[in-house]
Amino acid sequence: MASPATVEKLQAKALTLREHIVTDLIGVGKAGHLGGSCSGAELVAALYFHKMKHDPNNPAWEGRDRFLLSKGHAALVQYAALAEAGYFPKEELGKCKTLGAMLQGHPDMTKTPGIEANTGSLGQGLSIGSGIALGLRLDGIASKVYVMVGDGELAEGQIWEAAMAAASYKLDNLVAIIDNNQIQATGPIAERMDIGPVAAKFAAFGWETIEIDGHDIPAILAALDQADQIKGKPIAIIAATVKGKCISFAEHNAAFHNGAMTAEQMEIAKSDLQKLRR
């Protein structure tokens, strides 16, 4: 059980990540992946500021846990976390997606300290994570590989190729976190390609599955600890989330998958986040 102080710290961090996303990384009048970045904020905060072993001063530390963002378009939430953790100065956040910037539209390991792989062509992160998990196992390194997967990208066949392979190779050092926000770029997932019962699908492929509320910090921490105890199979944490979480006009709203905020909306977003501060 995490202490109340830890829970409070991580809740505050998740709000800080959202503030960076809204004000520094997107701003007014510019397209940005607000919805899918905000849906994963608690999950990312729990990993970077509590669960994962990592060293911002030595991003290549061999013993680190790895985090991959298969849904690479949500890079903003990872950029915010990396800056908060000290991988690079927070000033970089304001330059995101500008020419020559360290922070690209999708994660680029060649430009950004702390990014583990180039992702963004959807459906590939789970395979990349499997390869890292295999490599760590060959080297006898006890690190974990966490891969955040979007529910929209579960439509990609390669996800299920990886699901089959990871179970076949008994990769218990691999944890998939499904950011199950139910909305993809153009609208509700169920109305486009119904992915059906996500947990049952992963279970059928031989994974241990854990279903949680993806915004509930104690539940997230408990699930991550539970994943450590599973032996002989990969773990899928299916996190029920809200697209655009905490930003009133963006919640459950596909328009803010990659929408631009007006100046008024920016003020509302800031005020929404401020109200959630204790």
Binding site: A117, G131, L134, L138
Partner: peptide, 24 residues
């Protein structure tokens, strides 16, 4: 050090990417 990835070439390629990221 031999991984039979079966008839799933896309997964094979991305898995290789992950292995390369661990120095293989």
């Amino acid at each position: 050090r031999y991984f039979e990835m079966s008839i799933a070439e896309a997964n094979m390629a991305s898995t290789a990417a992950g292995l390369a990221l661990t120095g293989k």
